[in-house]
Design a protein around this nucleic acid. Structure first.
Lengths: 110, 110
DNA sequence: CAGTTGTATAAACATTTCTTTATATGGAGG
DNA sequence: CCTCCATATAAAGAAATGTTTATACAACTG
C-alpha cells in the first residue's frame, strides 16, 4: 500500500537480517566461511583465517555463531565449527526475492 | 588443495564481497532497499527510512551506492535511486554457492 | 539575478566494532 | 590432583561507522 517507507527500527525480521549481513561484512569472517564451505573444521585450523591469532578467530567465530550462520560442536577439548547451510540458503533466497522486487519484512515492508 | 585457510587480506574479490554485505548489515539501509524493491524512488521519499533526517538518508544512500547495490539518476534537482538488481542477484548466487559448499574467491579460496 | 528547494558534504561527536594482550575455563593425561 | 592443551572471555586500546548540526552546491522559479 504505502509507496515508500515504514518505521523500520524495532522490526525484528529486519534486525535479524541486518545482523546476519553484518556478520558477512568482514573479510576474515568471509575467509572463515569459505574455509567452512566444504565442511566442518576445527577451531584450531580456522585460526589460520585470522593470521593465527587465536583470540581473534574466537571473536569472529562467536559473531558468526551469534548471527546464526555457523554452528559449534564440542568434541573433547576441541571445537568444531560448521556452516548453517539452511541459514545461508535463506539469506540467498531473501536476496533473490529482493532482486525480484520484494523484501518481506515483519511490517510488510514499505 | 589446502584444507583450511589462505591469506585473505588483500583479496579483492573477498573485499568487495565484504563491502557489499556490510552495506546490507544495517536496518535503515535494509529499509531503503526494501523501499527500492518495487522500483525507483526519489531521495526525498527515502528520507522516510531514516525518520526524515535527510543528511542521514544521504549518508546511507551513499554507502549503498558505493557498495554497488544502488544506482543514482539525476532528474533536475531530484535524485532517483534504484536497486542494482544484477548486483543483488550476484550476491544471492554467491550465498547459494556457499550454501552448496563452495565460496569462490580470487585466491581460489581455502 | 535573487530566492527557494532538493540534495550532498563537512565537522564534531557518539557508538560500535575490531584488535591486542592477558587471563580464565574445561577437559585429557599423567 | 596437577599439568597441559585447546579454546573462550575480559579489559583496554585503536579504528571504523553512524548520527547530528550546520553549511554548501546545483538547479529551478520568479
Amino acid at each position: 500500500m504505502a509507496t515508500t517507507c515504514a518505521p523500520v527500527e524495532g522490526d525484528p525480521t529486519l534486525e535479524r537480517l541486518a545482523t546476519m549481513f553484518a556478520a558477512l561484512g568482514e573479510t576474515k569472517r568471509l575467509g572463515i566461511l569459505a574455509a567452512l564451505a566444504p565442511g566442518e573444521q576445527c577451531a584450531c585450523d580456522l585460526s589460520g583465517c585470522c593470521d593465527d591469532r587465536q583470540p581473534l578467530a574466537s571473536f569472529h567465530l562467536r559473531r558468526l555463531r551469534e548471527a546464526g550462520l555457523v554452528e559449534a560442536r564440542r568434541d573433547g577439548r576441541w571445537m568444531h565449527y560448521s556452516l548453517d547451510r539452511e541459514a545461508v540458503r535463506d539469506l540467498a533466497d531473501t536476496l533473490s526475492a529482493l532482486a525480484d522486487g520484494e523484501l518481506r519484512t515483519a511490517a510488510g515492508c514499505c
